[in-house]
Design a protein around this nucleic acid. Structure first.
Lengths: 161, 161
DNA sequence: ATATAACCGTTGTAGGGAATAACAATTGGC
DNA sequence: GCCAATTGTTATTCCCTACAACGGTTATAT
């Protein structure tokens, strides 16, 4: 069976389908807006961080380790809401790329102390620069005041969750 | 050189890990707040909709079909930002549960018109009742004004994404 | 001191969600 | 009729999340 690729035409990307879809009450659902906004934000994050190949969770982990040198894996997991089982391959990847490393600790041979490598520190600095521009996009769209309001409201959403 | 850290017995359920983790600049990252808020909202949604076993995407699909009887699959996908390939098993499940169905259309034998079954309509009504209580939780935490502000800000986030 | 419980990191497994490539069947433009 | 485009489908991949269980280690209790 020969496999042929036939996908390229149609430069006009949008509005190809004829009918307009009525969203009904969906446009007033906070959960739906939250989902769409988050998907959009993640997509922009990936685009912005493509050059250093960092995903949001990786950026968060590097930040936590940087702020808490020697922190244990379980502590990072608790802080970020990550399952410790899922944290293992995540940290493995950061170690493989030479950004972070596990240091065995004499006091407790079960746990390992996490540190950033020099390359990890450099990468994090670069990431922070990229992130500033990334955050700036929100300020552009919402205004400084709107952006701060959004941050405060999002934090309130999680209260007593 | 950090030295030994004593671990107290675990009287309380929370705060089991000894050390306090410093979040650094993370608490001022809008993307991070967005991610945590969305995860929290989804968890609450699943909890609230457990009794009728509906996930957010399924609820959205039922809503769109209800508002647009006879809508085609591609139209629903475009509206909700779902890949048409991923929509197939999603709709299969709704059909299997007797909530929605594909009706072949004479005018175009490629496409199928989507409709809710009577059970689908009943389920959607039940879902809307549950959703009202779900949304009310946001109003309780943010106030009516805060909730409306949040909705508006989230919609602005997606502008020109 | 020894048994028991708790903890840390790890492995394995499972599922949802999203993305891409490819395909058959069908429709429409030229 | 030929070729391009569309509709729905299958298959595959990847990321993220969740849960159960384990070996090794440490702490607690008797």
């Amino acid at each position: 069976m020969p496999k042929v690729k036939r996908k390229e035409p149609n430069e006009d990307a949008e509005a190809s389908s004829g009918r307009q879809v009525n969203f009904g009450p969906l446009t007033d659902y906070l959960g739906y807006a939250l989902r769409r906004a988050q998907m959009s934000a993640v997509a922009e994050f990936l685009e912005a961080f493509k050059e250093i190949d960092l995903r949001p969770t990786q950026f968060a982990v590097l930040t936590i380790i940087s702020e808490n040198p020697g922190v244990r894996q379980t502590e990072v997991c608790d802080a970020l809401g990550i399952q410790k089982a899922n944290f293992v391959p995540l940290l493995n990847e950061l170690e493989r790329r030479g950004l972070a490393l596990r240091k065995s600790v004499a006091a407790d041979r079960r746990s390992s102390a996490l540190h950033l490598t020099p390359l990890g520190n450099v990468t994090l600095q670069r990431a922070r620069t990229i992130h500033e521009a990334y955050e700036q996009r929100f300020v552009t769209r919402l205004g400084r005041r709107g952006r701060d309001q959004l941050l405060a409201l999002l934090n309130k959403v999680m209260e007593a969750g």
